[in-house]
């Protein structure tokens, strides 16, 4: 691990990777601790960008694109709408108070330590892949082996769309 680190430091790509990692982790931290809801939402945007970068480093080109399109373009906009629709414009601070930060920090800290410990201590059986574009393969998988889940998820999306519209629509005023 240490030796690998030494080798990696000489590679400029490593620095790019580290930058992405730092952006991801740092903005995730901002999401978690920021006192303003709007700041949290924008930090989440950065996190999604960072994760997309990580996907790129994992040669997952399709997922990197999907991350940008769906998360940044869709989910984040949804969340921002959520922020704006559930707060009055005059609430400048959009209070986002937190409770029990000590307990939360202890639990999530230990959770991180446990996960990191397992990640670092396990003797992963890493194998060489031939690097290749994933979009075609994913497409093949979607219309082949995973056709049924693919169709089911499309039905799910439709259901979620109708359900969300139903939940969010303005209730009929009764006379």
């Amino acid at each position: 691990m240490i030796a690998a680190l030494g080798l990696a430091v000489k590679n400029p790509a490593t620095w790019v990777f580290l930058a992405f990692a730092a952006v991801t982790c740092g903005s995730a931290l901002v999401v978690a601790v920021s006192r303003s809801l709007v700041y949290s939402a924008y930090a989440l945007l950065l996190t999604f960008f960072g994760v997309a970068g990580l996907y790129a480093f994992l040669d997952a080109d399709f997922l990197a694109a999907a991350q940008l399109l769906v998360y940044v373009g869709g989910i984040l906009v949804l969340i921002l709408f959520g922020v704006m629709l559930t707060h009055k414009i005059r609430d400048i601070n959009l209070s986002n108070e937190s409770t029990n930060p000590v307990v939360g920090a202890v639990i999530s800290g230990f959770l991180f330590l446990a996960l990191a410990y397992v990640s670092l201590m396990t003797d992963w059986q890493v194998v060489e892949h031939p690097a290749s574009a994933t979009s075609g393969e994913i497409g093949r998988a979607f219309v082949g082996k995973y056709l049924l889940p693919f169709e089911v998820s499309s039905v799910l999306l439709l259901g979620a769309l109708i359900g969300a519209a139903y939940l969010a629509r303005r209730e009929k005023r009764e006379a």
């Binding site: 639990i107 959770l111 446990a114 201590m121 396990t122 003797d123």
Partner: peptide
């Protein structure tokens, strides 16, 4: 979550304390 942590940690220590020196954690 706290319970899971305690269980996982305790289980890991109890079962692997002999292997700690060799750091050979087998899956």
């Amino acid at each position: 979550l706290a319970g899971v942590l305690v269980l996982v940690g305790g289980f890991h220590i109890v079962t692997n304390w002999k292997h700690f020196r060799s750091r050979n954690v087998s899956t």
